[in-house]
Simulated assay, not measured.
Amino acid sequence: MTLSPSGQVFHQANRDEAIDHFYTWSSSEQWNPGHKGLDIELLHSADPKGFFYSTVEPSTDNKDDQADAQTSPHPKKDEVVSIVSAVRYGDDQGWIGYYIASPKYRGRGYGLATFTRAFDHLTPDTRESIGLDAVMAQVQNYRKSGFTQSSWLNERRHGSAVDLVETQERELADKITMNEVEGLVLLSDPKVDLEQLPGIEARYCGLKRAKFVKEWAQFHVNHADHHRFGVAFLSSDKKDEQSGKPLVLGYACVRPATSSYRVGPLYATDGDVAKKLLVKLAIEVVQAEKQSSLGVPLVFDIDIPDKNLAAVKIFDGLGWKNTFPCLRMWKGKVPEHDVNGVFGVTTLEIG
């Protein structure tokens, strides 16, 4: 905990505080976080020291502060006024997310002060690349803070999982259901080499975070009771040199959120593999919902890069509209990446 000259107190959120503040606040902003905050614990574990919130110590002797309090509300003692995450990945990457100030106290600098404190967590050592996904209204403000580079514009595509499997891709869905699509398996299948997944993400989107990627995959493995699923597409003739297992040509995950199911990531060598992975996820979710309803709408939200023309073609063809654009921005070097393999990013919250 640290205290600013203005009386603002900065705290590093523990697990329970992260679940409380970051899930509650992102829900109130209609960011559609994971169902009941089940994914916040995993996101927090990516960097337990990287989740910050701030409160303001009420002034008792400053007449100017007392006068201001008569015309505008002053935060109560221990009332949270802003949150932000600043997650470290290795020695040279970081990610800013969950940047929210309380609507009651916006315009007073509380959010920016917390952002600055969190940013300090990323920069004691040299950080080659620090990224974030910026809502369009804040792009210019982030540029003023040094985020002058960008890699792509995310488009949040939104569509019905039921229509996907029962109407739009009925033929493909029937083949998948009958196990007639060779190589398409759940991540829980013993043929899947989970050790390949971090390399796939690093190659396609540029983030190097092996521990988180494997934990994220495990979060989606064998959790049908929570309606979380992971799927992979395996090569029929190519093997990984180290494990001897089939080469993973793509993988994808889906989890229930507040107002939809969120797909992420969706990495694939091409559009054909990507569509098979997407339809497989939809089949699993629709079947799970029929067996035991969570009450989450059977629609998918997926954030795709505008520069991946194959991804744009898939979702344009499905009629899934872009409901929430945001710009992937960087301070420092843009990591090397191959956007043509990114058919859906992992999360906007921590990259």
Rank of each mutant, 00 (worst) to 15 (best):
S4F: 04
P5Q: 02
S6I: 01
H11F: 07
Q12A: 12
A13L: 15
R15D: 14
A18I: 03
I19R: 04
F22H: 03
F22W: 02
G34F: 01
K36N: 08
K36T: 04
K36M: 09
L38W: 03
I40V: 15
E41I: 01
L43I: 08
S45M: 09
F51G: 00
S59H: 08
D61E: 09
N62E: 08
D64H: 03
Q66C: 09
D68E: 05
Q70V: 10
T71K: 06
S72H: 00
P73F: 01
P75S: 08
K76Y: 03
K77L: 14
Y89G: 07
G94L: 04
Y98R: 09
A101Y: 01
P103E: 10
R106C: 05
Y110T: 00
L112P: 05
A113D: 08
T114D: 01
F115R: 03
F115K: 03
R127A: 12
A134E: 07
V135F: 06
V135Y: 02
N141M: 11
K144D: 07
S145F: 15
Q149K: 14
S151D: 06
N154E: 04
S160R: 09
V162F: 07
E166N: 10
Q168H: 11
A173S: 15
K175M: 08
I176N: 05
T177K: 14
T177I: 01
E180A: 15
V181L: 14
L184N: 14
S188V: 06
D189G: 03
K191H: 12
D193E: 11
L194S: 08
I200E: 07
I200G: 06
K208A: 02
K208Y: 12
K211R: 11
F212C: 00
E215R: 14
F219T: 08
H220W: 11
D225Q: 12
H227V: 04
A232S: 12
S235R: 04
S236K: 10
D237S: 15
D237Y: 08
D240H: 11
Q242S: 12
S243R: 14
L247S: 04
V248L: 10
L249D: 06
A252S: 14
V254N: 01
R255W: 09
Y261M: 06
R262K: 15
P265D: 12
L266E: 13
T269E: 15
A274Y: 00
K275L: 15
L277Q: 09
A282M: 02
A282D: 00
I283V: 09
Q287C: 12
Q291A: 12
S293R: 08
V296N: 03
V299Q: 11
D306T: 11
K307D: 08
A310T: 12
D316V: 05
W320A: 06
F324S: 10
F324K: 03
P325N: 13
L327G: 14
M329D: 04
D338A: 11
N340E: 15
V342Q: 13
L348Y: 02
L348T: 05
L348K: 00
